[in-house]
């Protein structure tokens, strides 16, 4: 028989052990929950994205650095004006206000001959479909796009108005001829990868893609309207 003095000591020892175990268990549970929310491959992907962004900003900086250098070291006045003109034409091309020329791809979306029983609702292309194509092409690195001779600009909207599809204010109808300036191989594989051929086959449309070394897309035939925005000046 143990002495009565020993009893509290035993209970204390056991309590400490239990407390310790509970703490360990709680800790391992918490750590587990955290690791689940973000795993390594996710972080790696994020890192890749950030590195890509880093690279793009660097090219942008070098571009403006060069521009600044050309401004600051002009041979004469008319030369610095020329630099300004070049910069303007570069931005205009980006915005669709000037013609663009380069290698590229012509994508034609046309009706496939259908049986009389088919057709109807399913054989219509909607604004979403065209927007989807344009979006994927730019995502694949397209520099400029025109659909049936209408250039895509920064503010272009493609939307259904009644039964017709309007691009900005122009109605566009089948067959759609989408001209894209960019790397033809990359653009074509992006279209194939996203399964556009199958996608449009469902609505009885056929996609024909033609790679070209030289393609010219027209300028936007309107003017960029600016009424509500002002540039933010540095320091203000």
């Amino acid at each position: 028989m143990k002495s009565k003095k020993q009893i509290p000591l035993i209970i204390i020892a056991i309590s400490v052990i239990i407390g310790f175990m509970l703490a360990v268990q709680f800790k391992s549970y918490n750590a587990h929950a955290k690791t689940d929310s973000k795993d390594i491959s996710q972080i790696r992907q994020d890192l890749q994205k950030e590195m890509e962004r880093h690279r793009r900003i660097l090219t942008d900086i070098s571009k403006y650095d060069q521009l600044l250098y050309e401004y600051e070291n002009p041979l004469n006045h008319s030369d610095s004006l020329k630099v300004m003109k070049e910069e303007l034409s570069r931005i205009k091309a980006l915005g669709g206000l000037a013609e663009m020329e380069g290698s590229g791809l012509i994508i034609t979306i046309q009706n496939t001959p259908v049986d009389e029983e088919d057709g109807g609702y399913l054989s219509t292309i909607f604004d979403d479909d065209l927007r989807y194509v344009v979006n994927e092409l730019f995502g694949a690195g397209a520099h400029g796009i025109s659909i049936n001779g209408n250039r895509v600009t920064p503010t272009t909207a493609i939307r259904n108005v009644g039964d017709e599809i309007q691009m900005d204010t122009k109605i566009i109808r089948l067959p759609y001829e989408i001209k894209v300036v960019g790397d033809p191989n990359v653009l074509e594989s992006a279209m194939k990868l996203r399964g556009f051929e199958e996608y449009f086959a469902i609505v009885n449309k056929k996609i024909i893609m033609k790679k070209l070394d030289k393609i010219v897309i027209p300028a936007y035939d309107g003017k960029g309207m600016i009424r509500y925005m002002k540039p933010v000046k540095e320091g203000s």
Binding site: R55, R56, D60, R90, M100, H143
Partner: peptide
Amino acid sequence: LNLPAYTGDTQKLVVKEDL
């Protein structure tokens, strides 16, 4: 509303020289 500028690679563009 304040909107930031687009930052990205706008350099790779092929411009048709017509100036």
